[in-house]
Design a protein around this nucleic acid. Structure first.
Lengths: 189, 189
DNA sequence: CAAATGACTATAATTGAATTACAGTCATTT
DNA sequence: AAATGACTGTAATTCAATTATAGTCATTTG
């Protein structure tokens, strides 16, 4: 394995385990078995190394979301499957979970910026799928960006936020029923 | 004016101006022209005084939201008017705005708890209106609590959150159109 | 004598000086 | 030419000393 990859793997491991702030460049160098200076021949600074790791994670998330879709299923079924896959990734993936925690608790600016960017990418991903649906004639023309945003926020609200204040999570079926009869209903042709 | 009211007015003024943490009981006593001990004959501690102020504010917000509704207008029109009134209150009302800021920036626990409670009251208020709509036969029977929650979160997302990341706020008309064709459409009979 | 008061106390928050940790560099080594 | 790690300036952390403040209660007041 080349040095760049060794460094990336070491950084991913450390960021996942300790978060952004608590990861030191010395530690990454040690895990990667390279001198600290070597890291700086590949990445301008800590934040760029971090961004590279996050880009990789977003790709992973995208791949998983794509894999959640089923050939031949309806737009709604696949939209739901992909969104649930993303929300699962959000809490399951060690690095993502760590970053959410660090962003909230320690409020590391670099982490908060990255979290905003990840959400933007997710909404962009959803928007792409809606646009494809429109092109295929499965979805009505609409303000794609806005609908993607509303869809993501609605899933976040019902799947993630509800549990925080209600101490009894919503039933999957109830969520599907509600979103199916509201957003999806008006979205589909 | 009786001492209790003097204290409440002084506290409201101070909390609005400086927030919860930066308001001292000595200051409230001074503004109210009473001895500090007097405050404790009416309120067990700082937090109870604060809660009393917040209860008053919630009543104010409720009154304004009720006033935003128009006799004879449709359920949707009034729901929209009331929700927009609440969101306006959220940023316009000096105390509410201050608390949102303090909850985010200083993360005073008492303030964060109160903010959660206020949101719960708002959702409860919306739920009551939906229930009334059902009783009147204007709204389809549904999981009232869940729909109220989704409605509030959707308004928050499109009216408040969107602007934070997009630096170009959404048009009022676009928001109404989208929510009208999705949540409201499936909600109304 | 019942209500009001503010000096008082115990605890929490803040400050600032001293210490430590760390990102990034660069002269040296491989 | 690429890799390295000792080195440096700056930022973060500690911790002791100081200050601020919530809440009390013995005294005062009307």
């Amino acid at each position: 394995m080349d040095r760049r990859t060794e460094i990336l793997e070491a950084a991913a491991k450390s960021f996942s385990l300790f978060g952004y702030k608590a990861t030191t460049m010395d530690q990454v160098a040690k895990i990667a078995n390279v001198g600290k200076g070597t890291i700086y021949t590949f990445f301008a600074n800590k934040e760029e190394l971090f961004n590279a790791i996050v880009v990789g994670m977003i790709e992973e998330m995208r791949t998983e979301a794509e894999a959640a879709a089923i050939e031949g299923a309806t737009f709604e079924e696949n939209a739901h499957a992909r969104l649930m896959s993303i929300l699962k990734f959000r809490t399951t993936h060690q690095l993502y979970a760590k970053l959410i925690d660090e962003g909230k608790e320690i409020r590391t600016p670099a982490v908060q910026e990255v979290l905003v960017d990840i959400e933007k990418q997710i909404v962009k991903f959803i928007a792409e799928k809606i646009q494809k649906g429109i092109n295929r004639g499965e979805v009505k023309p609409c303000n794609v960006e806005m609908v993607a945003y509303l869809l993501f926020k609605s899933y976040m609200a019902l799947v993630v936020d509800w549990g925080k204040t209600h101490h009894q999570e919503l039933d999957q079926t109830e969520i599907i029923d509600l979103l199916s009869s509201t957003i999806f209903k008006s979205l589909l042709i």
